[in-house]
Design a protein around this nucleic acid. Structure first.
Lengths: 138, 138
DNA sequence: TATAAACCCTATAAAATTTATAGACAATAT
DNA sequence: ATATTGTCTATAAATTTTATAGGGTTTATA
């Protein structure tokens, strides 16, 4: 399951995607819309900005806005950013690889091999779904 | 990522699958093979037995053994049993459904709709990979 | 029939992670 | 000037995961 962080990130991105005509959107507005903590959301939006998905403007009249096209924000990226690996095991993660302590010989581990296949197929799904797909459904 | 519980379960199932000629296998043997806690693994094997994947025999000469064909143990089942939902959000889980607090109107939530698609495609993968596939790779 | 081996079961503790909060700081419009 | 709004880092609270503990029950076998 996705963490609340990722879930809130998706809601925030969706909200921003639906309000692209506005120059900026307040954290507060998104937080209120979904009944989530302003401060918690703040940290999430900050991460999204640092990752290059959002722009921001400080001071009165400030706020956040999307700086990428919704079609260029795949779910895989959002999940990796906030939740970490998409792979089911550390030993098959492309971006967060770590060996599994309990595995003596990764090269001959059937679990490893199968999980690589699962990872590749899962990635295909999550790379092909983007914020645009979410917006299209709203 | 899978929990250690699920990961250990997969290792145990693999071990049992590779030792089907033996009548029984000791918890201790599996635990030692992978350097994991005997007691922790005990609880996991118990769950696998209660779920109908393993049989056990008490007393001297006892132990665990597979009672299902490896091809009839899909990854989806093992993951659900030990880790819970496969769906990325509670609101799209088939087996562990719960509404999302921050979502006002599930029927018109694009995130919900897209996650249903992701769930269905993910399920296809995990239902089609079984313990047999792991064994075939060893 | 005594004994040791092995799983059964429930409870609890420890560790790690996730979720949430706090508060001082910086930029900007008016 | 002042109020507004994002920035950033630290810490606390809550939850979940991981691990341990220990007394049962069953069974083979000497």
């Amino acid at each position: 399951m996705l963490s609340k962080k990722t879930k809130y990130a998706l809601h925030a991105l969706t909200y921003l995607g639906k309000h692209r005509e506005n120059k900026t959107v307040l954290i507060q507005d998104i937080a209120e819309e979904h009944g989530i903590s302003h401060k918690f959301l703040e940290n999430i939006l900050l991460e999204l900005r640092k990752a290059g998905y959002l722009g921001s403007k400080k001071g009165k009249g400030g706020g956040y806005y999307l700086i990428k096209e919704p079609k260029d924000i795949p779910l895989s990226r959002v999940i990796r950013l906030l939740d970490g690996p998409i792979a089911l095991l550390p030993c098959v993660s492309l971006n967060y690889y770590e060996p599994c302590a309990e595995c003596k010989d990764e090269a001959h581990c059937g679990i490893n091999k199968v999980m690589i296949q699962v990872r590749d197929e899962t990635l295909k799904i999550l790379e092909n779904k983007s914020l645009q797909d979410i917006l299209d459904e709203e």
